[in-house]
Amino acid sequence: MEQPMELLGRQEVWNIAYDHALGETASYFFTQIRDHGRIFGRRCAQSNRVLVPPRAFSDETLLPTTEWVEVGPGGRIEAFTFVYEQFNGLPPPPYAFGYVLLDGADTALGGYFRNVDLTNPREAAEKLAIGTRVVTKFAEQRKGDVLDFWFEIA
């Protein structure tokens, strides 16, 4: 009988770095978080909606946003999930994260939920139910990114 032929493989890694310009709007947002532990959104004058995170323009009205509005630190949960699977390059499980509507905002901001017992997901889901009040906590050492803050049940 013929032997099955040898099939080869090759490991290839895409290792490539990018230096993305954040622009003025996101730069202000992150410096405020880094230097003062404060979160700002941008208001669209036409829709009157406060976009958080801040956008230089609204993707609905296509008009430039016009005004900085401080939001939070309180808010309510809009969405959440608990991850129990390890994915390459993502944090070790389990962890909880999701989206929070900060007080004064019209759109929700993503972040981790900390200090939640994730042993039983169904019990945790009741604790973090949509609508639950949370408060934003800031790290002592901040570098100006979205991991400088997280949410905890108020």
């Binding site: 993305h20 003025e24 230089a56």
Partner: peptide
């Protein structure tokens, strides 16, 4: 310049 992000340049 770096005053506009790529999204903003496209806008």
């Amino acid at each position: 310049g770096r005053d506009r992000s790529l999204e903003e340049i496209i806008y």
